[in-house]
Nucleic acid binder design. Structure first.
Length: 262
DNA sequence: CGGGCCTCCCCT
DNA sequence: AGGGGAGGCCCG
């Protein structure tokens, strides 16, 4: 059995390493990720050329193809929420100058488009002045339907902060879901069909995600991480072994019928 | 880059 | 029902 099985073992180990490197990704800011393991770019073509950008309170996987983040990740604690409430909001939407110019999204791309520059990691989570400004980088923005952004999405962000306060800490990964045929702003910035917000709650030992259609007649549901993975092509929490689902808070009242998550 | 405006959430 | 605050737009 000597040689062949030994050789087989080497290949098996190499295979495991290869699988591992597909599952997560080298990172410059492990502190934002559950078990310090960053999600990768999607294995689809949209992930081509995507790379991580670290900020002081969050990090994004930026795609030059879509000129949007593919995900934006935070580690939000109860203390952060408390601090963030005292940081005044200053709207300073800006192109991300750490990117090569031809990769950048610009304010002009969104102007008069009818779409909001929707935060992925939200402004209101940012516990410091610096991170608050950083959250206005267009590398943290996606074209989002106005009613969704100002309505349902905003309330979801509020629930998540409340949840972080109650349970102590959360790992949050937020981003767009693209589909074949999605249109672009100015042939430059791709408009996603959905946005998602995935939550890993260490206190509950599980995770789940919101998924909202990116239209003004908002509809929203809560899905499992496994389901989200099939939609986006990457694992938002590669460091989390348990895929146990947890309940996510949902809007109490209904304004326009399809606006509830369920 | 400030200021006026809009819509919507959420608390009272 | 009302009002403050939040997310974002546009125009000087």
């Amino acid at each position: 059995m000597g040689k062949p099985s030994h050789r087989w073992l080497v290949f098996a180990i190499l295979g495991l390493i290869a699988n591992a490197s597909v599952a997560w990704c080298a990172t410059d800011c492990p502190q934002f990720y559950a078990d310090e393991k960053a999600p990768g770019p999607p294995h689809t073509s949209i992930g081509r050329g995507a790379h991580e950008l670290c900020f002081s309170f969050f990090a994004v996987m930026y795609s030059p193809e879509t000129r949007t983040p593919l995900w934006s990740a935070e580690h939000l604690t109860a203390a952060d929420v408390k601090k963030a409430a005292r940081v005044p909001r200053r709207d300073r939407y800006h192109a991300e100058d750490r990117l090569p110019e031809d990769e950048q999204a610009e304010n002009a791309d969104y102007a008069h488009s009818g779409f909001d520059r929707g935060h992925m990691s939200p402004d209101n989570d940012m516990p410091t002045k610096v991170s608050e400004q950083e959250s206005f980088s267009l590398s943290n923005m996606v074209p989002q339907a106005k009613r969704l952004n100002e309505g349902l999405w905003r309330s979801l962000e509020g629930y998540v902060r409340k949840m972080a306060t109650k349970d102590g800490e959360l790992y949050i990964v937020t981003g767009p879901v693209f589909e074949e045929g999605d249109e672009q702003l100015h042939d430059r910035v791709t408009i996603p069909s959905f946005t998602f917000k995935a939550i890993y709650d260490p206190a509950l030992g599980g995770a789940a995600a919101y998924l909202a259609t990116n239209v003004n007649a908002t509809s929203c549901k809560v899905i499992s991480i496994a389901k989200l993975r099939t939609m986006v092509g990457f694992n938002p929490f590669p460091g989390v072994s348990s895929t146990k689902s947890i309940p996510l808070p949902v809007p109490r009242r209904v304004r326009d019928q399809p606006g509830v998550c369920g």
